[in-house]
């Protein structure tokens, strides 16, 4: 659906961060996350997809259209198939909720009665049926983002770009918005590209994720691989800073091991069983149990006193030990 072929973007004057040699392919109907610290080039990357920025070199191909080479009319046609939502929502404060949702239809020249019917559908779809006549200033942040989402998909978009779409929302609202986005992906087969600095967002809804660091793509893969088995040092640093990785426990007097387990193992009494069978003592130094879109996982940092080798061997039957 979306291909980046050796894409570089440089700016002559300040503005957004640059990108260097990014090659990336995003499949139809997947939820693709892009993580990285601020200034890594995430915004630049997502803006290349709908032509808000054009590549300095390389090609960006979206739904068969070479974005860099698109003429103005082609670009507008492409943009009507690519919705986008923003951290600050980007709604028209002077228009009602219904008029905000109708704007892309109006721009696309949809006749008034069809527009009205579509807006009624959209209001239902995002759970704002009772709020169509209100102005954005009268809505909560979560409701504003629902308007943003409805507006983004109003013209039957095939792709939804999310630029830090939940970063201005509280955790509960974030979860609501993410589940709405996941529903849209499931029901409409939307291809979704999410850029965010919030690791939980990627963990909860994305299928695959790319890690950007200083304008370079350092790693791409399924969410579980990137979060549990990061290969690049930059990824490990990023995860550690977000509290997702594991801190050092150099002061622990015994052996420190890290156990990563997914799927069925999560429901088993791993620690007590290993302790009983091998006679070691286990101290939980850190870790968490969580959920990816594809299933649950756990990652624990354990301090082992006693026969560490036996304990490691026993733990290894439940998951990956490092």
């Amino acid at each position: 659906m979306i291909q980046f072929e050796s894409v570089a973007k440089t700016f002559t004057t300040g503005g957004l961060p640059a990108l260097h040699d990014v090659t990336l392919s995003i499949a139809a109907s997947e939820i693709f996350g892009v993580i990285g610290r601020s200034g890594a080039g995430k915004s630049t990357l997502v803006r290349l997809i709908n032509g808000l920025e054009r590549p300095s070199s390389g090609r960006v191909v979206v739904d068969g259209q070479d974005v860099g080479a698109a003429r103005p009319a082609d670009m507008r046609a492409l943009r009507r198939r690519v919705g986008m939502i923003f951290q600050q929502f980007g709604l028209l404060s002077s228009a009602t909720v219904a008029d905000n949702m109708a704007l892309p239809l109006r721009i696309a020249g949809v006749p008034a009665d069809a527009r009205k019917a579509r807006v009624a559908d959209l209001l239902d779809r995002v759970g704002l049926a009772a709020h169509g006549h209100k102005y954005p200033g009268q809505l909560s942040g979560g409701q504003k983002q629902r308007v943003g989402i409805a507006r983004a998909i109003a013209g039957d978009a095939r792709i939804l770009l999310c630029d830090e779409a939940t970063s201005a929302l509280d955790p509960e609202t974030t979860r609501d918005i993410l589940s709405l986005i996941a529903d849209l992906n499931r029901d409409l087969g939307l291809t979704i590209v999410m850029i965010t600095h919030e690791m939980e967002v990627v963990r909860e809804v994305c299928d695959r994720v790319a890690v950007l660091d200083a304008g370079r793509l350092v790693e791409t893969g399924p969410v579980a691989d990137i979060f549990l088995r990061p290969q690049a040092a930059e990824t490990r640093r990023l995860l550690a800073q977000a509290g997702e990785g594991h801190a050092d426990h150099a002061d622990f007097p015994g052996r420190v091991v890290r156990l990563t387990f997914e799927g069925d193992a999560i429901a088993q009494p791993v620690l007590t069983r290993v302790a009983r069978e091998t006679g070691v003592d286990l101290v939980v130094l850190g870790g968490h149990i969580g959920r990816f879109r594809q299933g649950r996982y756990g990652q624990l940092t354990l301090g082992v006193t006693g026969d560490a080798e036996a304990a490691v061997a026993a733990l290894a039957t439940y998951g990956a030990v490092s």
Binding site: R76, I107, G155
Partner: peptide, 18 residues
């Protein structure tokens, strides 16, 4: 007028006139 608002409308495929 907010940067996000201008980008959002541009990203809808609006002409400059729109």
């Amino acid at each position: 007028v907010g940067r996000d608002t201008i980008e959002a409308v541009t990203a809808m495929g609006a002409t400059t006139r729109d």
